[in-house]
């Protein structure tokens, strides 16, 4: 469904992503694990958003995405939940969700989608009228994920959905991701909480300083001693 080929992203002289390649199959959940500054956000930003790569290509259903401006990609079914969430803080929760259904592909099913999202995040239903910016970090993350789902996506890109959240709130977010996963939606997720992510994902790529340094099925990655040392050390203590 998604094929990233030898993608390089640079900001000025700083090369954030250096010839990364990966594949995401239809209906799969793929994780990208790596430390801060490994280039994960640049990779997601190039697929779903404003980041312009220097070289390489991104094929989505066989067509290159690079010529499409960011706002057109939502219409193709790619929904990005960026790091920092990218919500509209001065608008209400309900307005944020309705904005998610702005693309033509989502307009007809907006009412059903809204019901699904509110069932997934009952907290949002209680706070429909509240300004999104006045909510807690976890609730804002729910708004961001809910809004992405409102666009009726075929591919969901999640950038650090548990970043900065208290462990118990992060758990809630992962529980919601597990239910979203169960609907069969294709997901590409970048996370620092490797342990919880590998529980959900089918396949994982490991990133180090702008390069893909390894990959494999999630259950193998999970039990690879080298990976545990490099990526799971801290995360183990976090979730268990």
């Amino acid at each position: 469904m998604l094929e990233v080929k030898d993608l390089t992203v640079a900001y000025g002289k700083h090369v954030a992503l250096d010839g990364a390649s990966l594949n995401v199959g239809q209906g799969r959940m793929v994780a990208i694990l790596g430390a801060n500054g490994a280039g994960k956000s640049s990779l997601l930003g190039a697929i779903g958003g404003p980041v312009r790569p220097v070289s390489g290509d991104i094929l989505y259903r066989g067509h290159s995405l690079l010529t499409l401006p960011a706002h057109r990609r939502v219409e193709e079914g790619i929904a990005l939940v960026p790091e920092g969430r990218g919500i509209f803080p001065a608008l209400s929760v309900e307005e944020n969700l309705l904005l998610g259904a702005i693309p033509d592909r989502a307009r007809r099913s907006a009412t059903e989608r809204m019901a699904e999202v509110l069932a997934l995040f009952p907290k949002l239903a209680e706070r429909r009228r509240q300004l999104a910016g006045t909510m807690s970090g976890g609730e804002q993350q729910m708004v961001a994920i809910g809004r992405a789902l409102m666009s009726n996506p075929d591919l969901l890109l999640l950038d650090e959905p548990s970043l900065g959240l208290a462990p118990i709130v992060a758990k809630e977010v992962f529980a919601a991701l597990s239910r979203i996963r169960a609907t069969g939606l294709t997901i590409l997720i970048v996370e620092q909480n490797a342990r919880a992510t590998l529980e959900l994902a089918d396949f994982a790529y490991l990133m180090e300083v702008g390069r893909i340094s390894g990959s494999g099925p999630a259950h193998q990655i999970k039990s690879d001693p080298a990976v545990i040392r490099a990526f799971l050390g801290g995360a183990l203590a976090d979730t268990r």
């Binding site: 706002h71 057109r72 939502v74 219409e75 929904a79 990005l80 990218g86 509209f88 904005l99 809004r147």
Partner: peptide, 8 residues
């Protein structure tokens, strides 16, 4: 944030 929801 507008491009994230498909707004030009």
């Amino acid at each position: 944030s507008a491009p994230l929801v498909g707004i030009d």
